[in-house]
């Protein structure tokens, strides 16, 4: 069976806003990626693995934390697939599994203070709003 978990695939597609099925396996993301050699799974593989629902392997891969979020893959993908957003969704998925540091969007306003950089606020909302 090719599909490991359709449910998981949908979850990541939903969370990242990326339809990985648009990928035509040209490899331009991997060709572009500056962190390619550091990774165990490479950008084009993430995309394929999400489509196939093989999320667990990805979540335990170190690639997830090697991605620099430079968005070169997003910029150059001819199919508008946005692999970097998939990585971000996978990171969020992992974060949410760790019970302790899981907070809800409603908790965030209470945690804000004037000195917090704008970027951090936006990123907090991005993480917990998904």
């Amino acid at each position: 069976m090719v599909h490991k978990s359709l449910e998981q695939a949908c979850l990541i597609m939903d969370r990242s806003g990326v339809d990985t099925r648009k990928c035509m396996m040209c490899g331009k993301c991997s060709a572009t990626c500056p962190a390619f050699d550091e990774m165990d799974y490479h950008p084009h593989q993430f995309v394929k693995m999400v489509t196939e629902g093989d999320i667990e392997s990805l979540l335990s891969s170190k690639s997830l934390w090697k991605c620099l979020s430079c968005f070169a893959c997003v910029e150059r993908c001819p199919r508008g697939v946005e692999p970097a957003n998939v990585v971000e969704a996978l990171r969020v998925t992992l974060l949410r599994r760790q019970g302790e540091n899981y907070i809800t969007a409603d908790d965030i306003p209470g945690l804000l203070d004037d000195k917090l950089p704008q970027q951090a606020i936006v990123s907090a909302f991005r993480k917990y709003k998904k």
């Binding site: 490899g27 060709a31 990626c33 390619f36 490479h42 150059r76």
Partner: peptide, 25 residues
């Protein structure tokens, strides 16, 4: 595989690409 970028280095062209079958950049 596709070419990610082409750049010039020391007077010659360099192609950075991926070989999807070998899974190598």
């Amino acid at each position: 595989g596709q070419v990610g970028k082409v750049y010039e280095k020391d007077g010659h062209l360099v192609v950075q690409a991926v070989d999807l079958i070998a899974n190598k950049q």
